[in-house]
Simulated scan of single mutants.
Amino acid sequence: MDAKALDDIGRVPHGGATDPGVIDFSANTNPETPSGVTAVYDSALSASGRYPADDYVAFRAAAADYVDCAPPEVIPTAGAMAGMRLLFAVALDDGDSAVIPEPSFGEYAREVRLQGGRPMPVAHDEVLDVDPAEHALVVVCTPNNPTGELVDRDRLLRLAARCRDAGTTLFVDEAFLDFTSQPSLAGEPGVVVARSLTKMFGLPGLRAGFLVATGRIRDRLDRGRLPWGLSTPAAAVGTHCLRRTEFVERTRDRVAAERERVRERLATEWEVYSSDAPFLLFDAGRDGPDAILEVARERGIVLRDARSFPRLDNHLRTAIRRPRENDRLLDALGV
């Protein structure tokens, strides 16, 4: 980490409300969790008086089945953020440039700078066309946050091939890919994939996730990861969740149906972006974000102010929750 960078790099704003009296549409996490999580957690907690086994055999096997890769290619991490920091530390040297999409997840630029790298912003819908030979790292988020669109897989594979030829690491953030039917790029040579248990399984506080990589970069990530980087409860609950395929399918169907219903209602008043993710981005129009945020808050609804994302100046983002909660959102917004 570049110690000098810490003097002028602040925190990145995120969604998430702590007030239990509101419905939080600002964070894109599943409001439901798989059955059996509490029992698994309690059992694992009782075993936490000793260090976890650092090979994480069961977690790696479950994660490998989930994304269709080989278990040794899985690098357990305390959430996708921890995995991203590990990768950027391994892939970037001082002064290296890294392509990052905009608007997209705000932590990309911050983490590049913390490692002494130079973030090179590119419009999110133009990232697949960059020349990777000029950069040490290229970042792709699919579906992209906050715009919501899924990246074309064939074009992504062509970018991966160009990155391999150039010796450039391609980092693919698949935090929301669970909500689509598109296969993961896990196991693709030269590509490092990040996955999170936060979004699909509704467990942001658990801090469980993983990277997938092959070859030399996989070996370097495995050597560089922290020992016991995944707690015993996180590993056990993560393994349990990754095996709940019916829960994933049921959630995916619910989100798809509700997303379209909410989109149609919001579109009667505002311009709404097409989305493959469990959220919708919309332009606040003449009302402006502040007026809409205030009205929503008065009615117990918290939306995400998307003006904190680069290139967005009049936008809000809303998560897709359960039908009755989405009804509350639509009623609060008067659509």
Rank of each mutant, 00 (worst) to 15 (best):
D152C: 03
V255R: 08
A186Q: 11
P76A: 06
P289Q: 08
A236L: 03
A234K: 03
G36C: 02
R207Y: 08
T168V: 09
L87E: 00
A89N: 14
D222I: 12
C141S: 15
S97E: 12
A61G: 05
R286H: 10
G285M: 03
E111R: 06
E102N: 11
P310L: 07
T214L: 01
L280R: 10
V193Y: 01
L197H: 00
S181H: 14
A70G: 09
I292P: 15
D131N: 14
F171I: 01
A91I: 02
P183N: 12
A234H: 00
V74S: 01
L45R: 14
F179C: 03
D94L: 11
I75F: 00
E126P: 11
P119W: 07
R110W: 04
A213E: 00
F282I: 06
G224P: 04
D65C: 06
G49I: 05
R243K: 12
H135Y: 15
D287P: 13
L157S: 09
I217C: 03
P143W: 08
A306V: 13
D2L: 04
S46E: 12
H240G: 00
D8G: 07
L293R: 10
G334D: 15
D313L: 04
L157P: 05
C241W: 01
L114T: 07
V255K: 01
A166V: 10
Y66K: 08
M120E: 12
K199G: 05
P71D: 00
D222H: 09
A296K: 09
A89L: 10
A208E: 01
A98H: 06
A319V: 15
V302Q: 12
R60P: 05
T169M: 03
A213P: 00
R243P: 06
F176L: 13
R11M: 06
D68R: 15
A166T: 10
L221H: 00
R322N: 07
F25P: 14
G106D: 04
R317P: 05
G83Q: 02
V237R: 03
E32H: 11
V139R: 03
A109P: 08
R328N: 13
L211Q: 01
F179G: 07
I217V: 14
E264A: 15
R286A: 12
V138Q: 13
R297Y: 13
L329D: 11
F179T: 00
I217F: 01
R263F: 04
S196C: 01
V122I: 14
P189V: 00
V151K: 09
A161L: 14
R162N: 07
Y51Q: 13
A123E: 12
G205A: 10
T268P: 07
A166Q: 11
L303W: 14
E325G: 08
L221T: 00
L280N: 02
L211S: 04
R118V: 13
V302Y: 11
D24Q: 11
A62H: 02
F59C: 01
I23D: 10
A277G: 09
R286N: 04
E298A: 13
A332H: 14
D42V: 03
